[in-house]
């Protein structure tokens, strides 16, 4: 009994080891192999720049350039001389002060409220078993509605005589409130609409993040006797931080971009109680034709946004665990 296959195997191995791989030798000498590698790297870099160019042009042409033009315009008077008059005017403009304070209240309330409500709905959404897709579509419904339409619908809800809210109030024996017609309630009423309108979209982000979390983490914690709330606070919430930062930045940007609801619901009134920054920019530029002043306010708006963005990222980045 003899084996016949094994010698064949050894000879093929020997043949391989006798020929040293050619590539290593050429690499060491900087030969044609290295040249091809350099060419390849250059081609890769060129392609990367080419792919970036369209986005770069749009960013430059529609964001950076207009901002620089606005900044230029805000420091020149109609005669073409440099002046700081537009910025000095801000200091004494009572409406502008009102607008800034409205804006800060609006941002400080809508951003956390949006985060809290969308997270709450998302957590509920993960627990839904029956009619799961119906629930998700209904979360998203307000977000696909045009803001103008949403605003108009809510104007009817808030309407003092035949609006739904006052209808309910009267039915249970309370006197109604002129929600949008009173300085004390108008901004609050508008914030409710804004949160309702944008929370739905963020529910989807939170839902996606929650569904990617490993369910075994909860099981491991359950076996160890961790209560649901403790688990949420110590595991779920920290792991959602990247999503929360994202939502926080978008919601903040949305709050500064808010003009649609102001247009449809209040036009900034009553007595500027719902006047927000972007609406005031529009008012000064196209309502009062004070375009240099409007440009100065725009510059202020950008500076405030930059500060907030830097603060948000600085503050949260350290506490975020990215996978």
């Amino acid at each position: 009994m003899t084996t016949t296959t094994e010698p064949a195997v050894t000879t093929s191995q020997e043949r391989q080891s006798r020929n040293p791989p050619g590539t290593e030798a050429t690499k060491a000498m900087g030969g044609p192999g290295a040249q091809a590698l350099r060419r390849r790297r250059r081609a890769d870099a060129l392609f990367s720049y080419a792919a970036l160019t369209p986005a770069f042009i749009i960013l430059l042409g529609f964001t950076v350039l207009p901002f620089l033009l606005s900044a230029w315009r805000s420091v020149r008077n109609p005669a073409g001389e440099f002046t700081s008059a537009n910025y000095e005017r801000m200091l004494n403009d009572g409406v502008f002060h009102q607008v800034i304070s409205n804006q800060l209240v609006y941002t400080a309330v809508t951003v956390p409220a949006t985060i809290a409500i969308s997270l709450f709905l998302a957590v509920l959404g993960t627990k839904v078993v029956r009619g799961r897709s119906l629930a998700r579509v209904s979360f998203l419904a307000p977000a696909v509605l045009p803001i103008v339409a949403a605003g108009t619908i809510w104007v009817y809800f808030y309407q003092p005589n035949f609006g739904v809210l006052n209808g309910i109030a009267r039915a249970i024996g309370l006197s109604g409130v002129n929600w949008l017609g009173t300085s004390d309630t108008a901004l609050g009423a508008m914030m409710v609409v804004a949160v309702w309108q944008q929370a739905g979209l963020f529910v989807i982000f939170y839902l996606a993040a929650l569904l990617t979390q490993d369910p075994q983490l909860r099981e491991a914690a359950r076996v160890e006797g961790t209560r649901a709330w403790t688990f949420f606070r110590r595991v779920t919430w920290p792991l959602l931080m990247p999503t929360t930062l994202f939502i926080g930045v978008i919601a903040t940007a949305n709050s500064f971009k808010q003009v649609d609801l102001v247009f449809v619901m209040t036009q900034g009134g009553p007595s500027d109680s719902t006047n927000l920054m972007l609406y005031y920019v529009w008012q000064t530029a196209f309502g009062q034709f004070r375009q240099e002043y409007s440009a100065a306010i725009t510059v202020m708006l950008v500076i405030i946004l930059l500060l907030i963005a830097i603060a948000q990222i600085r503050l949260l980045d350290k506490r975020i665990h990215y996978r």
């Binding site: 075994q216 983490l217 359950r222 076996v223 160890e224 006797g225 792991l239």
Partner: peptide, 20 residues
């Protein structure tokens, strides 16, 4: 009985460590 009241510990296949 709920798992936390059963007086046991468990080791999972993918370890279930908290990543953060």
């Amino acid at each position: 009985t709920a798992p936390e009241k059963r007086q046991l510990a468990m080791v999972f296949q993918n370890y279930a460590l908290f990543p953060h």
